[in-house]
Amino acid sequence: MSENTGILEIAVDHPRLDAAAAPAFRQELQDRFDHRPERVVLDLTHVDFIDSTGLGVLVSMLKQMGTNGRIAIVGASPAVQRLLQITRLDTLFLQCDSTAAAHDALA
């Protein structure tokens, strides 16, 4: 969490964010959510593949953040972008080219 901006930064280090990885990923997020953040920068640079279960964890995370919650995704691979497009969730999450751009978008 950046003290100055109040924006939580989370880097995901699961190369495959699939149904097998989802329980651990969900717990990792939960561990970071001791204070419910309203703005999160989610770095998916190291995620090569995501399925609907992995995506569901992100959707749950957004719901948990409340009605004012916003998530900016950085480093979305073509595979991640494709899933967001197929599911029409590309408008639910901001997609940014860099962490700095994500902070600007969430400011």
């Binding site: 609907s52 569901g56 964890v57 959707v59 749950s60 899933l83 197929i86 599911t87």
Partner: peptide, 16 residues
């Protein structure tokens, strides 16, 4: 629904 955490699998299969 748009913010449902589950239930997208079949739709994804058909879309792909």
């Amino acid at each position: 629904s748009r913010d449902a955490p589950r239930g997208r699998g079949i739709g994804i299969i058909r879309s792909c």
